[in-house]
Design a protein around this nucleic acid. Sequence first.
DNA 1: AGAGGATATGTCATTTTCGACATAAGTCAA
DNA 2: TTGACTTATGTCGAAAATGACATATCCTCT
Lengths: 105, 105
Amino acid sequence: MKEAKRNALEKKGWRVGSAGDLLGLSDEEMTLIELKLVMARSVKVRRQGSRLSQEQLAKMIHSSQSRVAKMEAGDRSVSIELLLRALLRLGTTKRELARMIADAA
Amino acid sequence: MKEAKRNALEKKGWRVGSAGDLLGLSDEEMTLIELKLVMARSVKVRRQGSRLSQEQLAKMIHSSQSRVAKMEAGDRSVSIELLLRALLRLGTTKRELARMIADAA
DNA sequence: AGAGGATATGTCATTTTCGACATAAGTCAA
DNA sequence: TTGACTTATGTCGAAAATGACATATCCTCT
């Protein structure tokens, strides 16, 4: 993995290949991270496309502005469940979700 | 929703249409639940297809037999993340995951 | 410049999910 | 039947994720 990419991930709270973990993450873990990042980007694009503020989207999914911000930033503390909840609430179809996963990683 | 189906969900810990929640779950919440159940079934099928015990699969994903059992039972306490982890570890391709999501709900 | 709205970042108490363990309940061959 | 596996279910303290809140930063206006 490129150093710049690793640094970007670590900024978001991901621990990618720390000192004691010479080989880094497993393929499955990397796939999950990449999937989260794809979903995060999609949330942002879709929200902006719908001309909603983070605050408005937060209300729609019974969350908070700060959590939406973290979602879109790809923060490690955000679960796939919450990302899915947001995407579905933004009208993402199952077909689109499927495409998203197929494209991830 | 059919009463039998609701009862089956509640057995697994899901709260579907409790007394104070006359209208039941939102479409998005139902979709998430259905997705989890589809993934749960797939984990079981794939594990059995690979002739692995729950204990063996548990080790492969650094979890425990009881959690795998709960996964396959569609228990509410199991996250989509863990289900994804198991499916990926069982060799599920992104294409197959995509198909799974498109089929859900 | 300053005001107002949006977004980013950090923290915290509560809730959810976690692995682990014990144990019950199935399955099946000897 | 007995015994060895396997799976189901309940519980627990630990860890992760959550909504909420405060506050900082960033943009657009005027």
